[in-house]
Each structure stands twice: as C-alpha cells, then as structure tokens.
C-alpha cells in the first residue's frame, strides 16, 4: 500500500514523514510512504496526506500554483474516493471558505468555514499545546483512550455541522478537533507531534 504525503512547500513535511515512517515501522504495517509534489505519484497512491502549517491563504495559493496537484487531489479523493487525511491547515483547506487575513475559497469538500477563534481575554491565542479531545466511536480512534491529549497549535477553527465532526476539544468553548466525511478525514491537532497517541492515530489511518 502506498501513501503519498503532499509536498507543496508548506507544512512540517519532515515531521509528518518521520511520524508516518515510525508508525509504519513500529506497528509492522508494510506501507510505502512517499513525500511528493508529482501528480503522477499522487494518482498511484492508495492514501493521501495533506499537511499544512502557515496561513490558509498561502497554503491555498501554494497548492493551486503547482501544476496538476489540485486536479489530482480532486480526482483521487472526490471521484475515486481514496482515503485522505488533512492535518491542521491541510484540514482547514477542505472547507468552503477561509477567513484568515482575507476571504479565500477552500476546496469545498466538507461544508463549513474557517474562522478566527473567539475566546475570552484570559485565553491566549494561538491555542497552543496539549489538549484533551472527546471523539465519536470510530476506527480512526481505535486503541486511543477517551480524553487523550493531542498537540494543537492554531488561531483559526473549522466551523461545520455536527455530522461532519468526529472529535472536539475544549478551549473556552467547543472547538472542532477532527472531521470526517465518507473517505475524508482531517485533524486540527498534529498527530505527528502528539507522541504515542499520534502514532496510534497514524496507525489507524494507515489501516483504515
């Protein structure tokens, strides 16, 4: 099985790649993991991972500026229904619209908007650090204890309807921590930086 981690110049690719390799190795999974910006390689992959660190605008522009990547993602994820995982901004990009700095179109794969988090004065922004999540029963959270901690770092949040939400965390109010719609999965937190819990989640995605 082949997993493509998309390289579009943004995101902590090295960390994501290392974390996938470690999970693949430690859990004996036999996946082939490749970091690529080549649409042909993306087309050949069985599963696709879209990391993302930076602003919604920059990430969105960067993906569309590399020939064929966006089209390839559309074809493989929406038409061929391949399993997909977006991380942080890589998840936020799936929304209809993002409001970071300016209004930008997202992919529109999961209905919703990405908006600045609203918190009282005594809550710092970015929401940065380890926070507890509550998740709905799903294979993607298999072997992970209820109320486990994952590493978050973000100032914008994905607002969507309850049926698209797989996990939430609490930061002054309920915040989307993970989304799922059919073959599409995304996390606001960083599994690649969430130590053992993150490793289990990556294992579950590879096994999904």
């Amino acid at each position: 099985m082949k997993i493509a981690i998309i390289n579009y110049g943004y995101g902590n690719l090295h960390s994501v790649n290392q974390a996938f390799k470690k999970a693949n190795n430690d859990f004996d999974l036999n996946a082939e993991i490749e970091v690529t910006n080549n649409p042909n390689e993306i087309n050949k992959a069985d599963k696709i991972v879209l990391p993302g660190v930076g602003s919604f605008t920059d990430c969105s522009n960067a993906i569309r500026s590399i020939d064929g990547i966006y089209e390839s993602l559309q074809e493989q994820v929406i038409n061929k229904k391949k399993h997909f995982m977006g991380i942080c901004v890589g998840m936020q990009l799936l929304a209809d619209i993002g409001y970071e700095n300016e209004k930008n179109d997202g992919f529109g794969w999961v209905s919703g908007t990405v908006e600045k988090m609203k918190v009282p004065l005594d809550f710092k922004i970015p929401h940065m650090g380890w926070n507890t999540i509550q998740f709905k029963n799903n294979d993607l959270f298999k072997d992970i204890d209820e109320n486990s901690d994952f590493y978050f770092v973000h100032s914008y949040e994905f607002k969507t309807v309850d049926e698209n939400i797989l996990a939430t965390t609490n930061y002054a109010s309920k915040v989307t921590a993970a989304i799922k719609k059919d073959n599409i999965f995304g996390t606001q937190f960083h599994p690649e930086k969430s130590h053992k819990n993150g490793q289990k989640l990556i294992k579950n995605f590879i096994n999904w």
């Binding site: 660190v53 930076g54 602003s55 920059d58 901004v89 970015p126 940065m128 770092v153 973000h154 100032s155």
Partner: peptide, 8 residues
C-alpha cells in the same frame, strides 16, 4: 509570521 504562520 506572514510567510510561515504566527504559530511557527
């Protein structure tokens, strides 16, 4: 911050 995001 504009290029790599505030959180970086």
């Amino acid at each position: 911050a504009e290029k790599y995001g505030t959180s970086t």
